[in-house]
């Protein structure tokens, strides 16, 4: 979903490594160690070194696209992602202008606000929390039809089930697999919870944490 320009340096770095490795393997004529990767074997992961952008410009995704992405990732109907008081669409009506939309006909807002307002991150959290809570409750209430939080063994109380769920959330919400550290961190959130119903609570919170990262809200 994100354009390549989001990760220009990283993509360029990975592509160059892949290209060089391929050339080496094809020609068996690699040059000196100074110029080429030392081990031109199979490349399974891009390099992890990240270079800060020299032109760090990002744009807010906006409430409408955010809600569409939530619906797709969490397998919800767009209309049920977030309804305030059960009837007012969050991103289409209530928080529309706050989340970067326009309201020309009723509000006279013809252009998106030039900067995010103080309430914008709160509204975004609210939208994500609504969608994540709905998804988790559905999956826990009807495990046979679960879409994201699929019970296996001890449900989300098992590390394995949580690991699978985290991978699903990352792939659905961010269109990538999590790094091992990210996976561990989100799976480990469970251990910070105390009290009852930890699995269901973890499901909502892990979904919320990933869905409201800046990576999910900006491009």
């Amino acid at each position: 979903m994100f354009p390549e320009s989001v990760f220009p340096e990283t993509v360029e770095h990975a592509s160059r490594a892949l290209l060089l490795a391929s050339l080496c393997m094809a020609s068996f004529a690699c040059g000196s160690d100074d110029e080429l990767p030392p081990q031109p074997g199979p490349v399974t992961q891009p390099p992890t070194q990240t270079v800060a952008s020299r032109n760090p410009v990002v744009k807010f995704k906006g409430g409408a696209a955010f809600a569409e992405d939530l619906a797709r990732a969490l397998r919800l109907d767009r209309e049920e992602v977030c309804l305030e008081l059960g009837q007012y669409d969050c991103t289409g009506e209530v928080h529309r202008v706050t989340l970067g939309g326009v309201d020309p006909y009723e509000g006279g807002v013809y252009e998106p606000l030039p900067r995010a307002t103080i309430t914008a991150p709160i509204a975004l959290d609210r939208v994500a929390l609504s969608a994540c809570s709905l998804r988790a409750d559905r999956d826990f209430d009807d495990p046979a039809a679960a879409a994201v939080f699929i019970a296996s063994g001890g449900g989300q109380d098992s590390v394995e089930a949580r690991t699978i769920a985290v991978d699903r959330l990352y792939q659905g919400l961010l269109l990538r697999i999590p790094t091992a550290d990210e996976r561990d961190a989100v799976v480990g959130l469970y251990d910070a919870l105390s009290g009852d119903d930890r699995g269901r609570r973890w499901a909502k919170l892990s979904c919320f944490a990933i869905a409201t990262t800046t990576e999910a809200a900006f491009y």
Binding site: T50, A52, S53, P56, I210, E215, F218
Partner: peptide
Amino acid sequence: LDPNSQFGKVFAQAERL
């Protein structure tokens, strides 16, 4: 999650972020 993701690192200095 945010400060350690590749996105967060690459665009850490973005004004909007």
